[in-house]
């Protein structure tokens, strides 16, 4: 197993629509220890479907509870531009918060919502990763456009477009942009899909992500460990690629 595994796509907490048995920070650490994952990037479920403020607090609480194990991702909700404008800089004063989460699906908007611009500019300035729920062609095209405008920001296509046809479209964007990546978080984990993603996007643009605790990470990790790819490619996917992104993040001025 790789020496450094970083899960770039995780959440935290209960969810309204279904039971999440291992939803607590301690559950997630137990799970990470079981499969030798050193760090996980988290945003709280509450921020996706409910109150953005206690949800982001929940994320910060977990980051503080397990320093060095969780990388905080601040969820940006464009329906509250003033609140986001005041909260976001405060959160990034904490060096445990190193990314932004966007879920335009549950927030029922699009990436081109003008109220997202503040977050893109912020990410551009601090070279932050922006994890975006990427499930359709419109979002992929949006990332194509935004990534050329905000070249300092790092755009992560969460779920890699989801279905194979969209994965191919996503890969076409990823290959042409230095600042766009795709992650492996999927509930429909198809046979030898990792090999194909490496083929169409390149191992240096694929990131290990699982959607824990929405989804148990073990099946996702197993398909990468069992993939017919080179050892260096596997190590890049499991941790090196994302570690380079994190090392490039610029600290916020306190």
């Amino acid at each position: 197993m790789s020496n450094m595994i970083i899960d770039c796509h995780c959440h935290l907490g209960r969810y309204f629509n279904f039971n999440v048995p291992g939803h607590s920070p301690a559950d997630m650490i137990k799970s990470m220890d079981n499969i030798s994952v050193s760090r996980a990037c988290i945003s709280a479920h509450m921020t996706l479907t409910s109150d953005i403020e206690p949800g982001n607090e929940e994320m910060l609480g977990a980051v503080s509870l397990f320093p060095g194990r969780f990388v905080g991702f601040f969820t940006f909700n464009p329906h509250y531009p003033e609140l986001m404008g005041s909260l976001m800089p405060e959160y990034f004063k904490n060096k445990g918060v190193r990314g932004i989460k966007i879920h335009q699906g549950t927030h029922m908007t699009s990436l081109m919502n003008p109220d997202y611009r503040a977050c893109y500019s912020f990410a551009d300035k601090y070279r932050l990763p922006v994890l975006i729920h990427t499930w359709d062609g419109e979002t992929i095209e949006g990332i194509r456009e935004l990534s050329s405008e905000y070249t300092g920001a790092v755009f992560i296509m969460g779920h890699f477009g989801a279905a194979p046809a969209n994965m191919k479209k996503a890969a076409d964007v990823i290959k042409t942009r230095n600042n766009v990546f795709g992650d492996t978080a999927l509930s429909m984990m198809m046979e030898r899909n990792i090999e194909w993603l490496v083929e169409i996007a390149g191992a240096d643009k694929v990131l290990y992500g699982t959607d824990m605790p929405f989804i148990d990470p073990r099946a996702c990790l197993g398909r990468i460990l069992g993939a017919h790819i080179s050892v260096p490619d596997r190590e890049r996917i499991l941790g090196m690629n994302f570690n380079e992104i994190l090392e490039n993040v610029k600290d916020h001025e306190n």
Binding site: K30, N34, I35, M188, M189, M190, E191, R192, N193, D216, R218, A219, C220, L221, G222, R223, L225, G226, A227
Partner: peptide, 15 residues
């Protein structure tokens, strides 16, 4: 359709 490697690893790593 779905991953054989992932399915085996999932059960192998059950706590």
């Amino acid at each position: 359709v779905y991953t054989g490697a992932g399915a085996v690893f999932y059960i192998s790593k059950l706590m």
